[in-house]
Design a protein around this nucleic acid. Structure first.
Lengths: 342, 342
DNA sequence: CTTGACAATGCAACCGGTTGCGTGTACAAT
DNA sequence: ATTGTACACGCAACCGGTTGCATTGTCAAG
C-alpha cells in the first residue's frame, strides 16, 4: 500500500501537500493539485482511514452493541428496524456503524465500555435499557457522546434518550381490550429483566387496577420474545379454566404468533373466544390468520432520531442531552374482538 | 483521556513497559505489572484502539456494505440472518463488524472500495453479487481478504465464495411443482439486475424447458423483493385468463405474501386453484394462512462460514480462496397442492 | 572474582496521516 | 529599485500506541 510519503516523493512535493490535496481544506495551486492527484491515481494511493482517525481524533463511526440476551433477537422485527434507522442517518452523514456483539447483560456492559473507552467510535447508541445509575454515570464520565434507546429508570437530566413510552402504551392496549369487554387479560412479556418488559407490565397492572381488576399472577408470564415463548404461555394459562384469559397482550409480534398457534391448536377461535394483541407491527402481522392487532412502535424512526441528535452533538463537540418521547399507534386488525359473553 | 505515557510517567516506567503490560506478550515482573495496572486503573486508562490499529496494522474489524438497491431490504429475512451469522463468528473471535450503507449498485462498489482501500477493516464480506470480472480483479488487487456471498458470474479460482446454488434449487422448486401437475408456473424474481434473480430465472427456465414447456414471457416478472411487488405481479398475470399461472414461485417470502394477498383478494383458493412457493423460510412463512411452502436458504450459516474462512485467512495473512456450495431445503406446507384439473 | 546467560526494562524509530507556523516567490504598489 | 503582501508550500511536531534492539541488573557457574 502506497503512503502519502510515496506519493509526495514521486510527485516531488512534501507529504503535507499531498495531505492538503486530499483534505481539500487548503489552497493548492491547480498545477500541483493535478500532479499530486495523477501520481496518486497512478500509484493507487488512498488515504489510510486509521491514520487519519488517529490524527484527527475522529473515526466517522458510530457504535452499537447488540444484546444477545434472548434468542430470536434476529427473528424479531426490532433489530432490522434498528439497523435500518441507524444506517439511514449514518449513511446520510457519511458515517459508518460499528457493531459489537455480546453474550448476556454483564458482557453487554463490558463491550459497551470497551468500545467507548478505546475510542473506537465517535459516539454510541445504547440499546440496553437495563442500565442503572452507576453505569450511566460511568458512561457519562467517559465523555463520549451517547444516547439511550429508552428512558432510564432513574432520572438523569444530563443524559439523552429517545423513549417509546412503553408503560403508557401498554396501558392503552389494555384499555382498548377492556372497552371490548375483556376483563381477564393476560400479559406476556419478553425478558423479565429487560426494562421494556417491566414498563409494559407496569402499564398493564396500572390499567387493570384502574378498571377495578386485580390481575392474577397467573395472567402474567414471560416468553423471552420467542415464538415458542408465546406458545408456552398459552399452555400454562389454559390450565386456569374459567379463569383463563379472554385476551392476550404480547410484548412482540413473534410471541403473539406463538399465542395464536397455541390457541388454534386448542381449537379456540380468534377473536370470537380469545383476542390477541402483539407489538411492533411486523410484516407478518398483516399476513397471519387472523391478521394481528398490534401496537406499532416506530423503532426505525426512534433510532434515526437518536442517531441524528448523536451526530449533532458529535459535531458540536458536546454531550447530547435531548430527551424525546415518541408516540406509538395501535393497529387494529382481526385478532381482537368483543369479549365472549360468560 | 489518559495515554500510555501518562500512565508510564505516573508509574515511573517507560511507555513501552506499559504497552507490554497491556499486550501481555512480554515478560514483566509481577511488581511493575501490578504497579502499572494500578495506576492505569486509577487514571482510568484504556488503550486507544485506533492507535493500536495503526501500529499493529490490524483493526480487528470485518466490514460489510449493505445494498440499498431495493426497498424492503430490512423487512426481508435476509438481512437479519446475514447480521446474525456474521456477528456470531465475529464475536467469537473478538472482532467487530463495520457496516457501511450505499444507495444503489454503483455506490455500493464505491463504498466497498472506499472501505477496502482505506484499510478500515481487516477483511470484508461482499454481499453484492453483481460484480463483474473487472471489479473482482480490482478488489483482488487491493490485497485485502474478502469473500463473496454467491458465486460470481465468471470463474475465478483465486477468489473465495460461499454459494447457495440458486439456479439448481430454483429448478428443484419448479420440478416439485411440476410433479404436482403444474405446467403454467410463474417466476417472480427480485431485482432483475441482481445475480440471484438471474440465477433463479435460469434454473426456472431450464426446468420448464426440460419438462417440454416453453415459459411465456408473461409468466416472468419482478417484484424487487417487496410485498407489493408480489401483489402487483399477480395483478398483471391474472389478465392472462386461461393462460394465467397455476403456481407461483417467488424469490423471497415477502413477495410470496404479496402474491397470497392478491390471490385472496381475487377469491382464488390456495392451494386448490393456485399454489405458491416462497424463498427463505422466514418466521412469517409458518404463520400465514395458508402456511407457506418455501425454499429455505441457510443464509446465517452461509455467512458464518464465509466469515470463518475470512478470519482464518486474515490470521494466515493470505487471501482466501476456498469455494463452498451450500445446500438448501424445500419446506413443504399448505400453500402448494396438486394442480387443478383443467 | 570473572564471565556468561538470562530476565526485565529503557530507547527510539515507526505506523500514516494532520496542521500550526515559517519561508520563499511573485506580483502589485510606492 | 524597494517594500508590502498574499499565496503556495515546506518543516517538524504530533496523534497514541508497538517492537527490535540495546542496556542494566541478577544470579549461577567456572
Amino acid at each position: 500500500m502506497p503512503t502519502i510519503r510515496d506519493v509526495a516523493h514521486q510527485a516531488g512535493v512534501h507529504p503535507s501537500t499531498v495531505s492538503r490535496v486530499f483534505s481539500g481544506k487548503s489552497k493548492i495551486s491547480e498545477a500541483t493539485r493535478t500532479r499530486v492527484l495523477e501520481t496518486a491515481e497512478q500509484l493507487g494511493f488512498q488515504p489510510n482511514a486509521i491514520a487519519r482517525s488517529l490524527s484527527m481524533q475522529q473515526t466517522r463511526t458510530i457504535a452499537i452493541v447488540v444484546p444477545h440476551i434472548f434468542q430470536g433477537f434476529f427473528q424479531d422485527d426490532y433489530f432490522p428496524q434498528v439497523m435500518q434507522g441507524l444506517l439511514q442517518v449514518a449513511y446520510k452523514h457519511d458515517y459508518r456503524i460499528l457493531v459489537g456483539g455480546s453474550s448476556g447483560h454483564a458482557d453487554e456492559i463490558t463491550q459497551l465500555f470497551d468500545i467507548v473507552g478505546s475510542r473506537q467510535a465517535d459516539g454510541i447508541v445504547v440499546l440496553s435499557n437495563r442500565l442503572d445509575v452507576d453505569v450511566i454515570g460511568a458512561l457519562h464520565n467517559q465523555d463520549l457522546p451517547f444516547v439511550l434507546m429508552g428512558k432510564p429508570l432513574e432520572n438523569h437530566d444530563d443524559v439523552a434518550w429517545v423513549d417509546s413510552q412503553d408503560a403508557y402504551y401498554s396501558g392503552e392496549v389494555v384499555r382498548y381490550l377492556q372497552q371490548l369487554g375483556h376483563r381477564r387479560i393476560a400479559y406476556v412479556g419478553g425478558d423479565p429483566d429487560v426494562l421494556v418488559s417491566k414498563e409494559r407490565l407496569l402499564g398493564y397492572v396500572r390499567a387493570m387496577k384502574q378498571a377495578g381488576i386485580e390481575p392474577l399472577p397467573e395472567w402474567i408470564d414471560y416468553g423471552f420474545f420467542a415464538e415458542d415463548g408465546g406458545y408456552q404461555a398459552v399452555q400454562r394459562m389454559s390450565k386456569l379454566d374459567q379463569l383463563a384469559p379472554t385476551a392476550y397482550y404480547a410484548a412482540n409480534d413473534l410471541m403473539a404468533l406463538g399465542i395464536i398457534r397455541a390457541l388454534k391448536q386448542r381449537n379456540i377461535r380468534i377473536p370470537e373466544q380469545v383476542s390477541v394483541v402483539g407489538t411492533n407491527n411486523s410484516v407478518a402481522a398483516a399476513h397471519v390468520h387472523p391478521t394481528l392487532t398490534t401496537l406499532e412502535v416506530p423503532y426505525a424512526d426512534m433510532i434515526a432520531q437518536a442517531a441524528s441528535l448523536l451526530l449533532h452533538s458529535i459535531h458540536q463537540g458536546e454531550m447530547p442531552t435531548v430527551q424525546k418521547s415518541i408516540d406509538c399507534r395501535l393497529v387494529v386488525r382481526e385478532s381482537t374482538g368483543p369479549a365472549p359473553s360468560e
